[in-house]
Amino acid sequence: MSTTPKSLYRDEGVVLRTQKLGEADRIVTVLTRRHGKVRAVAKGVRRTKSKFGARLEPFSHVDLQLYTGRSLDVVSQAESIRSYGSVIAADYPAYTAGTAVLETADRLTAEEKEPSLRLFLLVVGALRALSDRTRPAGLVLDAFLLRAMSVAGWEPALGDCARCGTEGPHRHFSVPAGGSVCRECRPTGSAMPSPVTIEHLEALLSGDWERAEASENAQRREGSGLVAALLQWHLERGLRSLPLVDRSDVAPRREAGLLSEA
């Protein structure tokens, strides 16, 4: 056994997902404030007498003490800062939207331990909004996805042309081009969403909730279809949780059809 001292560090983070490991352990993926995404082993967490108890479930905002292990870090202590899980899980639309938030955050942080403070703050904000239930879950999700894409460097062009920068608004919208495109630049197969939908997306991106919440169901539906298509385009491999998002607080519909066209 080597006697090198373990390097301990402390950080706060949101649990994105958990995977079973061996008999009683779990690997928890945490998006931390200062260390970016960290995958760490929580030993014995599945036992009833575990000191971690329910603190390391997805949607938990926790204060963690970790030490660096050989391949994965190990959680040595965990304290809850705020646990959004029980409130979110009790509301099915919020749960499915929240899961999509967590999966997106996991997928957007490709490198572990690469600080991503802005994404962390976005995730915390989205979970807080979902658990407060002051706004429709579907809108919170779409606003999060738009802003998370911006943080990742894929801010969709909603005003000026995505290709040549000609001042907008433009009628055409192309997912591969990255948003609105002018008449000259539009690639074949670009869509023509309603101009009101684009305004709705602008409101979501800039956090103008008054305008976003005043939107009609038709715009919300078209808007979330465009957001989903943009995200799937950038992530290459689709999100598993996105087609399962329950938007019955808007109107029942099938999202899968829209996604496959992207």
């Binding site: 000191k51 971690f52 108890g53 809850s80 899980g85 029980s86």
Partner: peptide
């Protein structure tokens, strides 16, 4: 709380 357990060791969520 699990039957036969101690209150002080329970996590705050449970």
């Amino acid at each position: 709380l699990p039957v036969g357990g101690d209150l002080e060791y329970a996590d705050e969520i449970t």
